[in-house]
Nucleic acid binder design. Sequence first.
DNA 1: CGGAACATTGAGCACATTCAACCGAGGTGG
DNA 2: CCACCTCGGTTGAATGTGCTCAATGTTCCG
Lengths: 247, 247
Amino acid sequence: MNAPAAAQMIRCSDCPIRHRAVCARCDSDELEQLEQIKYYRSFEAGQTIIWSGDRMEFVGSVVSGIASLTQTMEDGRTQMVGLLLPSDFVGRPGRDSAAYDVVATTDIMMCCFRRKPFEQLMAETPHVAHRLLEMTLDELDAAREWMLVLGRKTAREKIASLLGIIARRNSVMAPSEFRDGIVFDLPLTREAMADYLGLTLETVSRQISALKRDGVIRLQGKRHVTVPDMARLMDEAGDDGDGGFPL
Amino acid sequence: MNAPAAAQMIRCSDCPIRHRAVCARCDSDELEQLEQIKYYRSFEAGQTIIWSGDRMEFVGSVVSGIASLTQTMEDGRTQMVGLLLPSDFVGRPGRDSAAYDVVATTDIMMCCFRRKPFEQLMAETPHVAHRLLEMTLDELDAAREWMLVLGRKTAREKIASLLGIIARRNSVMAPSEFRDGIVFDLPLTREAMADYLGLTLETVSRQISALKRDGVIRLQGKRHVTVPDMARLMDEAGDDGDGGFPL
DNA sequence: CGGAACATTGAGCACATTCAACCGAGGTGG
DNA sequence: CCACCTCGGTTGAATGTGCTCAATGTTCCG
């Protein structure tokens, strides 16, 4: 609840997600308008940023860190329905109350816009709305890929798919060696992975151990992963060699 | 391949989906422009409308009938990732090749727009783009609801969820008696239901039989369903009484 | 040192799948 | 007209994947 000192002001032009977020297409004029209605908030890992059903006071972008979108049934069963990475957009313009819980998976910094002014701005300037459409279409594609994972893949394939996605994302940041070995840290606990994949945390643990035993991955500690042969991993994920996952 | 006589011209103002489709917000001017680039195509049940990977020549709206969006793995496992009802939009502006198979589930009529002119029009007029954003956000919500169904629900709950959605959709068309009994025809085969729910067709059949045995539903023939107590069905679906599914 | 949070592993079980037989309706051809 | 086929659907028996329950391990932090 106490806003840490981290919530210092960043000028939009210096923003690390300037070119990928909902503001990517804005000209300097529009950026100026956004600058007027934005504010930063940071959250610690584990904090709930938005409760499902709550009134949405703001929409915004993830600047740094990771958050998850989750749904929970009355008996406690939980399904993650979105993984929010830096530059991803949170909230739905035009909707009053939140449809999902948004939880900080790691410490996170958000760039928030008060909802009403943002909606106003969206109606007036085409660039924000257009970029949001583009991002929403991408998210829809990602959601549909996940429907295949959830509905039809085995536990082992699910884990391999998730590792593949995380590896792929990292490879955007370090596009150098992709073919022959890639290294990354898992940003999720076993439980969070289970919630993403529609598995139990025990099954996640077992399958990770199995992939390690079979030499598909190597582990240092519980989170640091080495994938010696990316093609092998994609094969385990059940994806055809070429295509695979967008996002 | 032979376009049946059904593909007669309909004036946009007389169109049955005029107020719900991507053109819903258009003024008469914009409608005129759409009228220029549209054409109708009909497909028979079972026909593939678009093959995944194919070049997208057109985007469009479902006018009547039902189509499904599916993904298939190399070994044949299939997951439906979208159910396209009248007024739903097909295709992604800005994308050259299709990401999914689009298959006609019933006989279907489509209102198609040549892609390039449509993209042009979208860039110039705000109403189409805005409506498309709205529809895409709705689809994303629906996809996320399905992720919960696919990832966390039991076979019985999955079937109940699907029946609930179809019942709900029908209730839009016949909003009269919703509380005490609703009747509808299943637009899907057992296999299509299985592909939607991430189950086998045998499991679908068994669970439908079980729901019938337990008095949750009644059946006449294989497709005609009566739900005597909607609240009971929603309960079987694992949804809390009030909320439930959007779309 | 003790406790908490995260993770691993084992044993038994249950639910959904697999494989297979069978049913009924509708269509076609001899 | 009936035999035959196909298609969609139902049902049964055996199997197996992933879940449940439970114990144990590891790391970190007060």
